[in-house]
Amino acid sequence: MKRGLFFLLSYCLISGLIAQEVQWKEITTPVKASLRGLSPVSTTVCWASGSQGTWLKTMDGGESWEHGSIEGLDSLDFRAIHAWDDERAIVASAGSPAVVYKTSDGGKTWEKVHEEAEPAFFDALTFLSPNRGFLLGDPIDGTWMLLETYDGGDSWQRLPISPPAAEGEAAFAASNSSLLVNRNILVFGTGGATSNLHLYSLNDQYWTLFQGPLLQGAFSQGIFGLSFVQDGIVAVGGDFEKPDSRDRTAAVFKNQMAELPNRFPSGYRSGIAYWKQKKLLIAVGPSGSDISLDQGMNWENFSATGFHAVKVSLDQKSIWASGSQGRIGKLISK
């Protein structure tokens, strides 16, 4: 018992010191949209998207930005985006119409590559490789909507098997991090009546359901963001109607079990990212940002600045965040 207490106190001391050594560099952008779509490519190239049909891109680390409204669709909220480089990016809307647009010329023009009939609602978009990607949508007639592409998003089709949704179960288009994929599995997290983790074996084509211990039971509660870590998957969320509450705002899934952290993030968290190079987790939400050095078992707050989404760049050399009022952040060490 004494040894365990000593370890916990030592960890808290070390993580507290680390939290004092990192901070967000807030970057001024020319837009005031709510930015829930974020896709950094490198330390210099980053794309974002959000409300009012907004897209924006920097190629010089945030010193200057190109921006616009996708095909004049200023009534749509593009909460999911994936960029391959400074020329190619793809976005998906949250709401009606449920559409997917792609640019191959750096945002100068956007082509509609997919549209779903009502009442479809897209929640998240992710890619396994430059050509193969996946798109998650809210349940229709009791079944989750899952689409896949094999040609870089130029065409989309339904996944061969989609899991059923429990009554009152929902997904959240909060940060484009509720859907993950690696070479073996496709994973998405849910909330509402129940917080679940749905895992799909890409090789064997079957679904496995894990019930999560995060806050659940109301439409505003559940899993909002997921990240692979070395030993499993870390989920963050809570209750977006209670942004300062620490009640069951995270969980760690490993070895076919779910475990609650020893120390929770300091409020509802909508986005999460794991920086493998430095072995640290960052979680963000409207009340601030938290860091974990032990793959989600203990969290320490390091900023009161609110963000919706957080992502590690494709080259694994930087972490970016996005939020309301066109807010963009880049993680730096003091």
Score class of each variant (00 low, 15 high):
127 F>P: 08
164 P>V: 11
24 W>N: 12
180 L>T: 03
156 W>F: 01
31 V>P: 03
183 R>T: 11
220 S>E: 02
185 I>M: 09
310 V>P: 00
191 G>Q: 05
105 D>G: 03
234 V>P: 02
35 L>C: 08
258 A>R: 05
271 G>K: 01
39 S>A: 12
106 G>T: 00
15 S>P: 03
124 A>P: 07
260 L>V: 10
42 S>R: 11
48 A>F: 06
225 G>N: 07
110 W>C: 02
19 A>K: 03
274 Y>C: 03
167 E>W: 06
183 R>E: 13
232 G>M: 12
301 N>G: 14
192 G>H: 04
80 A>V: 05
277 Q>D: 10
153 G>Y: 04
236 V>H: 09
157 Q>W: 12
212 G>F: 06
262 N>W: 14
316 Q>N: 10
137 G>E: 09
239 D>A: 04
81 I>R: 00
16 G>P: 05
257 M>N: 14
239 D>K: 02
211 Q>E: 09
319 I>G: 08
102 K>W: 11
290 D>I: 04
120 A>M: 05
319 I>Q: 03
246 R>C: 15
274 Y>Q: 02
323 G>L: 03
263 R>L: 06
321 A>G: 14
167 E>R: 04
173 A>T: 01
151 D>E: 09
263 R>T: 11
298 N>H: 12
18 I>A: 12
19 A>E: 10
310 V>F: 02
113 V>D: 00
229 V>N: 00
277 Q>T: 15
247 D>E: 14
84 W>Q: 11
325 Q>I: 14
141 D>A: 10
